[in-house]
Each structure stands twice: as structure tokens, then as C-alpha cells.
Write a protein that binds this DNA or RNA. Structure first.
Length: 208
DNA sequence: AAAACGATCTACT
DNA sequence: GTAGATCGTTTTG
């Protein structure tokens, strides 16, 4: 088995996720998404997130009730919610206590480790396209439906850790992506100026 | 059983 | 900046 690089070894604890989605979405920026497979370890710094709220959030997958697909977001925090759409997968971190339906979508990461492996999975694309986008980062790190409901606090297969060189990040936010979402509150968060943040959707409201 | 719907991506101009 | 591909999941008849 591959030895986990000690700088990424400690998963964020349950308490980190057991808070409201907006707080978790903001604080996930700068953290490191870690994926361990038999092929090796991949890791990337989270640079873009999007919060989905428990109640009155028509954009949430849980808004119209529980189904087989969205069961994970009705469960406890600190788990992954993975779904497929348009031939790709997207990954969320479930937040707030079990029974609520909040989550944070991971929209982009900046590659830190296992870059060769990620590039192999993605095929030949320009470097900044490697993990810029929720579907792309899942392809690069081999996240699929097998990880739906996975416990992110276990520190195996898939987890999130502190950045080894913790430093302040400058955060901005902007409306959600997608049609009809323009009037939504500012629930998409990203690290200002990072090349792996979605282009053409630059932030509107600086904060922090 | 059929139809509709995207928390997307790529390839254009 | 936008059109079109594409398919698993959900909803409807």
C-alpha cells in the first residue's frame, strides 16, 4: 500500500462539517482534497466552492424530497455526496446534522500532488483545465458513485485535510452558476485570482 | 414506458 | 458568450 504523505494525512474532523453550509463553504477554501487509489495519491487545494442550503433552496437537489439519488445529503455531515450529471460526476461535502439537507459542492481544485496521474486520467488538456470545474476534478481524481456517502473523516480513499502551509486566502463570492440563479444570494466562493477558478464568471462582491 | 430535466463540458465564433 | 451533446435519474401517463 502506498504511504500517505504525512502532510496530508489528517482528515478534517466531524465538527468541521457540522456547521452551516456557508461557513463550511468559506472555510473549505485553501483546504486540500485528497484522493488515494491503488494507482497512487492525488491532492489539490480547494479554490472554489458553492453552498447549498437546507431549506427554501430551490437549487438544492434535496428541495423536492428524498430520492435514491440524493439520499446522502439527508444523512450525517462529513460524508460525500456524489452524483452524476451530463456524463460526469460532481462531489459535495455534506454539512449540518443528519436530517438536514445542506451540502457544499467542490467546484475547483489547484493540483498539488499526483499531477501526472490526474493528467493521465483527464487525457491531454491544457494545464489549467486539469481540475477547473466540478466534473473535471472528479475525473482527474477518479471520484465516482462508489464514493457516494463515503465518510470523509476516516482518512482513507477520499478526505479533506489542512494545507501543510496554512496561509491566509483572499476570498470573493458571486451568484450561483446556471440559468435562473442570478437572483440567488452569493453562495459561490472562490480564492481571488486563482487560475483554476471558473473563468468568465469573475466575482462581483469582494469580501474579507 | 416515455418524456423531461439538469449543481456540465467542449468547441466553436 | 453561446449552442449543442449527452445520459442517468426522476417524473408522469
Amino acid at each position: 500500500m502506498h504511504k500517505v504523505d504525512s502532510q496530508f494525512a489528517d482528515p478534517l474532523p466531524l465538527d468541521f462539517y457540522n456547521r452551516d453550509s456557508v461557513t463550511v463553504a468559506r472555510e473549505l477554501l485553501g483546504k486540500v482534497l485528497v484522493r488515494l487509489t491503488p494507482q497512487g495519491l492525488c491532492a489539490g487545494r480547494i479554490v472554489e466552492t458553492e453552498a447549498y442550503l437546507a431549506k427554501n433552496d430551490a437549487a438544492s437537489h434535496a428541495y423536492r424530497g428524498r430520492t435514491n439519488r440524493n439520499a446522502a445529503i439527508f444523512g450525517p455531515p462529513g460524508r460525500a455526496y456524489v452524483f452524476s450529471i451530463h456524463q460526469v460526476f460532481c462531489v459535495n461535502a455534506v454539512t449540518e446534522p443528519a436530517g438536514t439537507t445542506s451540502a457544499v459542492l467542490i467546484r475547483a481544485i489547484e493540483p498539488l500532488a499526483g499531477i501526472e496521474l490526474m493528467a493521465k486520467r483527464r487525457g491531454h488538456v491544457r494545464s489549467y483545465d486539469l481540475t477547473r470545474g466540478p466534473g473535471k476534478l472528479c475525473q482527474a481524481t477518479a471520484i465516482d458513485l462508489q464514493l457516494d456517502g463515503w465518510d470523509l473523516t476516516r482518512g482513507s480513499r477520499l478526505w479533506i485535510a489542512d494545507h501543510p502551509d496554512a496561509r491566509g486566502v483572499t476570498i470573493s463570492n458571486s451568484p450561483r452558476i446556471g440559468l435562473g440563479k442570478a437572483k440567488d444570494p452569493l453562495l459561490r466562493f472562490f480564492i481571488t485570482g486563482n487560475q483554476y477558478v471558473s473563468k468568465s464568471r469573475a466575482g462581483v462582491a469582494a469580501s474579507e
